[in-house]
Design a protein around this nucleic acid. Structure first.
Lengths: 208, 208
DNA sequence: AGCGGTCTAGAACGAGCGCTCTATTTAGGG
DNA sequence: CCCTAAATAGAGCGCTCGTTCTAGACCGCT
């Protein structure tokens, strides 16, 4: 309370209405990641973002769903950036994927096992509805798969194999993340990383 | 209405108070699978089970959480049975796992892509809490992993490899199921099945 | 100085939540 | 035949939800 420094000038940069809107998106992304869509209230988002309900509905006339769509899109792009960096750390795609799994494991442990995949939770809750949320979730998953696919293509994979393996890699990482959260252990992610590296490596022999 | 045949005699078997309680568990399991924990109301469970609120609280004094624990346990055992059967269809563990993925894919499509893993959704929503729900979710996942692990051990896998691969198989199937739901496509599960079969097969060369 | 748009602020509404409470109905042993 | 416990039935509690609505604060204009 008593804080609310009023936009604090906006002073700095180019942007016009930035600041509050971004805080809302970031807070929503964090809460969705931890509590899912149904479990997260708009008032809680406003509170965490140090904004008011009026501001939330000003920037997102579409209400809760619009906030969630923006938040998931944001999270999806953020994770894509992290994934791209991790994939670039090694020429061997298998090693790069294993490194990525390890990074996920560390981040998960440091968050107390509660900050999992920002897409999975929200996607599962809105499957029965015709919500746009599932569309942005699908888009995020697809963009991640494409990053892995391109890495594999660059390592000499055939088009069909690259697509199959990329889909499997993203699925396995997703599932391993959930398993790691439930068991409060890094091991599922570590094991998935090792096995995915082995799977990717098994193509090298015949494909290159 | 007007139905409610009162316990319908119990007539048949050994059981005493069965009937209503079972209907509640089954209805709850189905709703949890489709809508998650937070998204499912106790009143809706009662309605779907053709029971009343009074009956629900009579059989489950622990309230919503107790109903969910019973429902998830039930679903976990049910899926374990299905998994055990699928694994028994072939001597080759890789082929058995691929068949299992195919079966999941068909079931998912037939449900309109909404009846996914009964554990994942509920687990993700209750991670931040100290609920007992996460414990039964972890138990269910663990029992599934153990089924796969034993199948692999029976095929000549070493103890460490069997454990690693079993964890990865369950994680990948879980993740592929979610991906398939989001994309409304069997392909993620089919791809995961193929790649998991390949992964399992890659051990055969050196291990047997 | 005064105006119009952008943004902030929070009170208020109807709906639905999990749960508690009091009756009523059913089945079976003295 | 009645009396008790199990089971069924649903009205009502306090609460929080997403959303709407009206005001006020701040800005660059003319």
């Amino acid at each position: 309370m008593a804080q609310t420094p009023s936009t604090s000038g906006t002073g700095a940069g180019a942007g016009a209405t930035t600041g509050t809107r971004d805080r809302i998106v970031i807070a929503a992304a964090r809460l969705l990641q931890r509590q899912g869509y149904v479990g997260t209230g708009i008032k809680q988002i406003a509170k965490d973002a140090e904004a008011t309900l009026g501001s939330v509905y000003h920037f997102f006339p579409g209400g809760k769903e619009a906030v969630a769509v923006a938040a998931i899109t944001h999270s999806g792009e953020e994770f894509a950036g992290m994934l791209g960096e991790a994939l670039a750390t090694s020429d061997d795609p298998g090693a790069a994927i294993e490194a990525c799994a390890a990074e996920l494991a560390v981040g998960l442990r440091e968050s107390g096992w509660i900050e999992g995949c920002p897409v999975t939770a929200a996607a599962l809750e809105t499957l029965g509805t015709d919500s746009e949320i599932q569309r942005v979730c699908a888009a995020a998953l697809g963009s991640w798969e494409r990053l892995v696919e391109e890495k594999l293509l660059g390592s000499g994979f055939g088009a069909t194999d690259a697509r199959d393996v990329a889909t499997t890699v993203i699925s396995a990482l997703e599932g391993a993340e959930v398993t790691a959260q439930v068991n409060r252990s890094e091991e599922p992610l570590r094991a998935a990383g090792r096995q995915l590296a082995r799977l990717v490596g098994s193509y090298r022999i015949e494909a290159v």
